[in-house]
Design a protein around this nucleic acid. Structure first.
Lengths: 337, 337
DNA sequence: CTGAAAGCGCTTACAG
DNA sequence: CTGAAAGCGCTTACAG
């Protein structure tokens, strides 16, 4: 009795053809000059019977699936989990479903997942790319699939993307440290070719230069991380013990910051008196701990909504243009500086 | 050129009928006595052309969608985010896609989302129910939809579920505190009728009783929380300041624990010397902070895999039986006791 | 202002 | 051992 209704049933009930019902259902009644009286009658019956059209018949016919594919690094982490949540919400309001996958920053896995999404015939993609994914993405682009890169992008591809203004965030927080009198500011980051990590480093360097400070190579630590939290604590610990001259440390990601804090606490270095600490990306820990840590925060909802709205634009526009969006980060001042 | 292939194209290429191709595709070649030679030829062509059958045509025809609906409290939090990730992975390996939704513990939203999932015609459900969702769930059950409740359940419904053994976790960690000599143990929880919160309280009470300790009402705090992190810090702060006699606090959820730690740190109470602290649910913060916090952890992968495997069993079995699974929690001893 | 009918790409009962 | 054909429930170009 439930879910077994078809257009034909509604048509019979209303005494009209399935064509008419279909037009009403799709808001094309006006365009096809269906009379108001009939439109209203059909609408009433649809409501009464709680009729919802069969997704598969519709998908088969139109080639549209109303499903979007979301590929993130790790749906289990705070940032991407909340991004997914926001995207899902907005997508649902527009009638789209979202299926998601986690790459764990593994290039081969990411390539596979992209193919899987393609086989699902998703209508559009929001992708947090791994390194090396540019070819697969370019292929998808060639097939005219609407696609939005998120959090990272490939400078060489002319594709819509939504990213944080990493340069600006790093620049501003470094400048803030300098204004507070710090001259020896360490920067701890990961070895990565991805644009967002490069931009953070550039922001740090630009701020030093602009303020007439020399960059000292011994103040830069580049760690070998494949995945967030895979981390090796001892290198950071060693670096902190060795570099007694630095008065401030800027961690380029939150998991680096957490590792660093572990080391700083263990070495009984007092924050912020002996050492000021700032980090990219907010985290519960930074907010709750004493002293709380100053961060460059990513406005999650803003980023997520920019991504889904860009994708919806690409889907709905006949001749869409590439949109490249940079969201300004938000500096949250806390007690660690 | 891509994705435009149909059964007919493969059939033409192989010089057989679409029927034959369909049988091969669905592993029914043997049953229908298709010759090995032809089977292999068709398989080769399918592979060469990278043919994948149209999901919608298949769904329309079979009524199966190969999509599962996952409804959690909040995909953005650590626990549910990682549950979703594990479920997604196992489901994909079995050829199912997963669409997810977050209820934010809002009963009306949950009801709505359940209907939405139904309209998507998902093949099965994994649901973290909110209070008051029993009727909607019962309705779904009446329609013979495979459904697994997760994290919480309705004692009055005979439905498959996968939950943590909350009673056992609370009982064991309370007993551990008592063995360490604590006699005044506070329990801070939320006002909730859901079984899992009740079981935690019961575990705490049972342990006190078993060890000959009287339950004292002033040691129990029940807070009015609708959603995780909506929290009102001042009540906890007030409770901690007021109850000077307690030597240990057991927080019934991790967000309560985090709020509590904020208060304890602010009041400069020393852990574990003046006050031992334990919490239900692990969290990054509990692991990293000094002193690290002892917790009753939920084995996320075990829980998630039990849920998806139960659902797959319900989907694949002709006459499935209800499965009610309790997973044992894991006590992680850290420095806070 | 409205309807009859083709066709999207599958699966499967039936016929041989 | 294999194929012709119906039908799942829609959308829409076409005819009136």
């Amino acid at each position: 009795m439930m879910g077994k209704l078809s257009l034909r049933d509604i048509a019979k009930e209303a005494g009209v053809s399935v064509t008419t019902v279909s037009f009403v259902l799709n808001g094309k009644a006006k365009d096809n000059r269906i009379s108001d009286a009939i439109t209203r009658k059909v609408e009433r019956i649809i409501k009464e019977k709680k009729f919802t059209p069969n997704t598969f018949a519709r998908g088969l016919r139109t080639g549209k699936t109303m499903v979007l594919g979301l590929m993130v690094e790790d749906i289990g982490n705070f940032f991407f989990g909340n991004v997914a949540k926001t995207i899902e919400l907005t997508a649902y309001q527009k009638g789209y479903k979202v299926i998601f996958t986690s790459t764990d920053n593994d290039e081969d896995k990411a390539k596979d997942l992209l193919l899987t999404l393609k086989h699902q015939q998703v209508d559009g993609y929001i992708v947090t790319p791994t390194a090396g994914l540019n070819k697969s993405i370019a292929q998808l682009q060639k097939e005219n699939k609407p696609i939005v890169l998120f959090d990272r992008y490939f400078p060489e591809l002319d594709l819509s993307h939504v990213i944080l203004d990493n340069f600006k965030g790093a620049y501003e927080i470094t400048s803030m440290l300098i204004r507070k009198g710090h001259k020896k500011i360490a920067f701890i980051t990961i070895k990565s070719e991805m644009a967002q990590m490069r931009d953070r480093l550039q922001g740090y360097l630009a701020s030093l230069q602009e303020h007439g400070l020399d960059f000292e190579n011994e103040n830069l630590l580049k760690l070998d991380f494949k995945v967030a939290n895979s981390g090796n604590y001892s290198e950071i610990d060693h670096f902190i013990k060795k570099n007694k001259k630095i008065t401030a440390i800027f961690f380029a990601t939150n998991y680096l910051g957490i590792l660093g804090l572990e080391s700083i606490i263990k070495n009984k270095i007092s924050i912020p008196d002996e050492l000021a600490v700032v980090s990219f990306d907010d985290h519960d820990l930074f907010r709750v701990m004493k002293p709380a840590v100053t961060v460059v925060a990513q406005p999650i909802e803003k980023l997520a909504n920019a991504a889904i709205n860009t994708l919806l634009y690409l889907l709905e526009s006949k001749h869409p243009e590439t949109r490249k969006i940079k969201i300004s980060p938000q500096i949250i001042l806390r007690e660690s500086v």
